[in-house]
């Protein structure tokens, strides 16, 4: 009787674990991101913002901590990137990518800020259908920050993720 109850409990727990898990949203500072533009490294402010103080455009990659129990069966993940884009002709553009464990990118969403604003931040909203990735597929965010414009620098402040 006890053994039977134990087995049922184990089966119930296994089924519970198999449910598509929903994790709470999280916001990360831009400081997590790493430059992939060779020696053109961005500056990180004490607030955690990432600022492009180089003379030209740079590209950064931000790793994303996955915090769902069953990532391979999660339907979608949403991103909201907060950036400052003072450039009149170029924009801050970000691409969220879902990649198989072997490194093959299989789905992505890309978006840019619109217009220019030296004082107020702008947002970019992205969405991925993560059901495409097999077990241990991973997510990364890549952003392009334009060079300075009239003394104002572009900034990647934070990125919000909801799985």
């Amino acid at each position: 009787m006890t053994k039977n109850t134990f087995k049922k409990s184990v089966a119930a727990l296994a089924l519970l674990g198999a449910l598509p898990a929903v994790a709470g949203p999280a916001t990360y500072a831009g400081a997590l991101c790493t430059s992939v533009s060779g020696f053109a490294a961005p500056s990180i402010f004490r607030s955690g913002r990432l600022i492009n103080q180089t003379g030209g455009a740079i590209e950064v990659v931000c790793p994303v901590q996955r915090n769902v129990v069953a990532p391979s069966f999660n339907e979608n993940v949403s991103f909201l990137i907060t950036a400052r884009d003072p450039h009149l002709t170029e924009n801050v553009c970000c691409t969220a990518t879902l990649t198989e464990p072997d490194g093959t990118a299989i789905t992505a969403d890309s978006g840019c800020t619109a217009g220019a604003d030296t004082a107020n931040p702008k947002t970019i909203s992205l969405n991925l259908a993560t059901a495409f990735a097999s077990v241990n597929g991973y997510i990364a965010l890549r952003c392009e920050l334009p060079g300075p414009y009239s003394g104002f620098q572009s900034t990647l402040s934070s990125f919000y993720i909801s799985e």
């Binding site: 553009c93 691409t95 072997d102 093959t104 890309s110 978006g111 840019c112």
Partner: peptide
């Protein structure tokens, strides 16, 4: 080769004018 296949999506979405959602079936 496999590297060209793995980087296809990232390269494609770096093209200005192609900013949207993409799905690849390798």
């Amino acid at each position: 080769n496999g590297d060209a296949q793995a980087e296809l999506l990232t390269s494609l979405l770096r093209v200005q004018g192609l900013r949207g959602q993409a799905v690849v079936r390798p």
